[in-house]
Nucleic acid binder design. Structure first.
Lengths: 296, 296
DNA sequence: CTAGCCATGTGCGTTTTCCGAACATTGAGT
DNA sequence: ACTCAATGTTCGGAAAACGCACATGGCTAG
């Protein structure tokens, strides 16, 4: 049995006017002019065949029928509101972001306060990972990664900036060694085992044979380098602050590694992830413009 | 706190498709094409940021979010339907009609079957009355009356036809009397005490002094006339059948009484009363065209 | 009593939404 | 491989909705 519901738009206008007590207030709530509300109510009265308001213009009262209808409609629209809110992917709620740990600490967290100021209703939940992304397996909405194409299926790819790497060590270590880092241990990270090889190939440099030390994460390795325990190859975003403060130096500058930082967004409608990635892109642009690594 | 409800039209299309299981069935229920339903649902998915259906085109299933939304929307739209039905003045239900008793019997009831055939959902409730109409006091929706302007305030006035009256009596009575109805009692009705006087004045005729007999209603009086108990002045609609069948005759024909039959409709929106009065008007037109009283 | 204010009502032209029609795509069944 | 039924997409037109300007009608203050 089909329902017999008149113009939903007219029902909405009437409900707002009846609830708020004034057509002008209903117009305000609905972002239309009073005349639009007036016409919708009049149309509804015509369709229903009964007056909904009575009394003089400047002091309208609901009729008995109008009051009955209002009660039912307010219930119905409230129910709709609740239902829609319970499923809608709106611009509030939680956003899950996966990101390499050191990038999170050195680049993302120092900037994230700006996103949170712009979108206070979006709660960004960070998790650390450098693993390849598989959106059919992984639960996060956005992943930040460094690498090369091809990027995984089911992802929107947002380029942030190319990776630039260089050999870095404490100034005191460099003062005590040769241009080939003679006698200075080579520090490696498990998350980027080919860092040294790639840098040497691209820079055309050679280094002396030295003891090799391996760390779990970039962050640990960089702490060791700053402490004068060795020399490592690191991306510019991870060390720009340390170099600025003189904790580390890059005697041969930085050059592009052939890798790129990207944000991978799960390719489904998600306003929060869209907003986040737009923000990421703008932060990356600002970063590239304001922070240029030393060349070799 | 304003609600955040997307396009109501889109919500309605989705609810129908989700409930009925097919977009084509929703289209049928909503009297649109499938493509309109498809577009509304797609628009809703965009706005909500979630898919509502999944699976291949020819075998769509609700998503989890879609099923949640459907449950809430079905409740809401049902509530709207109930509320609207409880107050709407629609084309079904009861219609109260007040009408003089004899006109009801002799004119209205023989025609009413046609209204009921056209509008089987309207139940016409008849009550007999010739009293002046006061819609602020009386409970009926439509009143049929005979009389002259001014008609009461708050009423739409629908002219049916002018009243034509004539002196009528049984043919056997007329065979035994003179042109002045010598020796034939004059029959009167309480509901129209001035009938004789008006007719004599307008016709320019004179009648012999005869015994006067008074009846409560026209119907009783006309029965007496048919039985040969006297002569009376009656409106043409009340006697046209009796004259056609030879139960009564009108030796001097009929002439306009200066009164008019009108339908008085309570001047408020009421589809049933509007439809009824339109029907009355058309029946009156047909009656005037097909039933001409004999002239004098 | 008059003028001003506020709220709703009305007409007209413009904008937006909604739609049908035509065609495209995709599974399932024969 | 073909057919059918169901949904998806594009384009142009129709209908609904709207803003704006003006009209109407109580109420209040001076």
């Amino acid at each position: 049995m089909a329902r017999r519901i008149p113009s939903l738009n007219a029902l909405r206008a009437f409900e707002a006017a009846g609830r708020l007590g004034r057509m002008t207030q209903a117009a305000e709530e609905l972002n239309v002019t009073h005349s639009a509300v007036s016409r919708q109510i009049q149309h509804l009265e015509n369709v229903l065949g009964i007056p909904l308001f009575e009394g003089p213009k400047n002091r309208l009262r609901l009729t008995e029928g109008g009051a009955t209808l209002l009660a039912g409609l307010t219930t119905a629209f409230d129910q709709m509101d609740i239902s829609v809110r319970s499923v809608a992917d709106t611009e509030d709620g939680q956003l899950d972001v996966s990101c390499p740990g050191t990038f999170t600490m050195r680049w993302l967290i120092p900037r994230l306060y700006r996103f949170q100021a712009n979108y206070p209703n979006i709660e960004v939940r960070l998790s650390a990972s450098s693993k390849p992304v598989d959106f059919s397996r992984d639960g996060f909405d956005v992943a930040i990664r460094v690498g090369t194409a091809p990027w995984p299926d089911g992802a929107d790819v947002i380029s942030l900036f190319p990776e630039q790497t260089g050999a870095v060590l404490a100034p005191s270590s460099f003062a005590e060694t040769t241009p080939e880092f003679d006698g200075v241990p080579q520090l490696h990270t498990r998350t980027r085992l080919r860092a040294w090889g790639d840098w040497l190939a691209r820079s055309g440099r050679s280094v002396a044979a030295s003891p090799r030390v391996e760390y779990e994460h970039f962050y640990f390795m960089l702490e060791a380098a700053s402490a004068g325990l060795g020399v490592c190859v690191a991306p510019w975003p991870y060390v720009s602050d340390d170099i600025r403060f003189g904790r580390l130096m890059a005697p041969y500058g930085f050059l592009e590694s052939g890798h790129e930082y990207v944000a991978l967004r799960r390719a489904r409608r998600n306003r929060k992830s869209v907003l986040f990635c737009e923000w990421l892109r703008s932060e990356a642009e600002a970063y590239v413009r304001s922070s240029t690594p030393p060349a070799n």
